[in-house]
Design a protein around this nucleic acid. Structure first.
Lengths: 131, 131
DNA sequence: CTAGGTGCAAATTTTTTGCACATGC
DNA sequence: GCATGTGCAAAAAATTTGCACCTAG
């Protein structure tokens, strides 16, 4: 069956996602890694992001401005998505909040929770006021 | 400026979203409404869904299996997304849970909260066991 | 040697848009 | 009449996939 063979590219993608504090899209990863691997293909990035997500080594933050964003930080936290600039920031979630959410799984087996707050980040609020 | 003129199609889309308990995609809305409006265009559905979302009359549930899903129910609730069949089910969120989440908005101005639980719904769990 | 992994480019899929015509006010 | 809404079809944009070649084990 589908054995998992070691792959330098996949390792690099995983390492990058674990290292950065932003929440990259496939294209961002591609551009970043192309500096180290000039021959890298966008298809490979997509394939590996999908694979890593499915194996639970990274997680998807969902689609922002038409592009899926990924996160190498698996700890329990939510995301604040700025509707102005598309930035994705981590949001701490209280124990209470998470416990309350976990109770909602009466529909089947819950394997993941994603909390997304949307709004305007500080920078975009400032711009708004100036405009 | 962009005045809001009355539109039969937009009204129908809004009414449909308020009426159904599922969380339709643009295409689903299109197919459903084409029975009443044979000349309806998919472009019109997309334009109006976007407009309705921006004016806050409906909300987006985010992308499921590559398609954006919408919700005409504006009350505070979360969603359970089945990874097996793509179904989206409403999940009640406790007051406490929501309050705790709302506290996370230290990054700017929070205008929306979306809580998504992923997993397998009852039906898909059953199928899994049988398979 | 053999099952994976990758590059490349074409194909798919979803959503957006330009434009001519229709409609509300 | 004029700004806005719609149908249609083409365009965009993101992601997937087929295939020939490359590589780890």
């Amino acid at each position: 069956m589908a054995a998992e063979r070691k792959s330098e590219k996949r390792d690099a993608i995983l390492a990058l996602l674990r290292r950065v504090r932003c929440h990259p899209s496939a294209e961002w990863v591609y551009n970043e890694l192309r500096r180290t691997y000039p021959g890298l293909s966008l298809g490979t990035v997509y394939r590996n992001l999908r694979r890593l997500t499915e194996s639970g080594l990274i997680r998807s933050v969902g689609v922002v401005d038409g592009q899926e964003r990924f996160d190498g930080n698996l700890s329990a936290h939510g995301h604040f998505v700025c509707q102005g600039c598309g930035a994705v920031l981590d949001v701490e979630l209280s124990e209470d909040g998470l416990d309350a959410l976990a109770g909602g799984g009466s529909h089947g087996r819950v394997t993941g929770v994603e909390v997304r707050l949307t709004g305007l980040c500080r920078d975009c609020l400032d711009k708004d006021i100036r405009a």
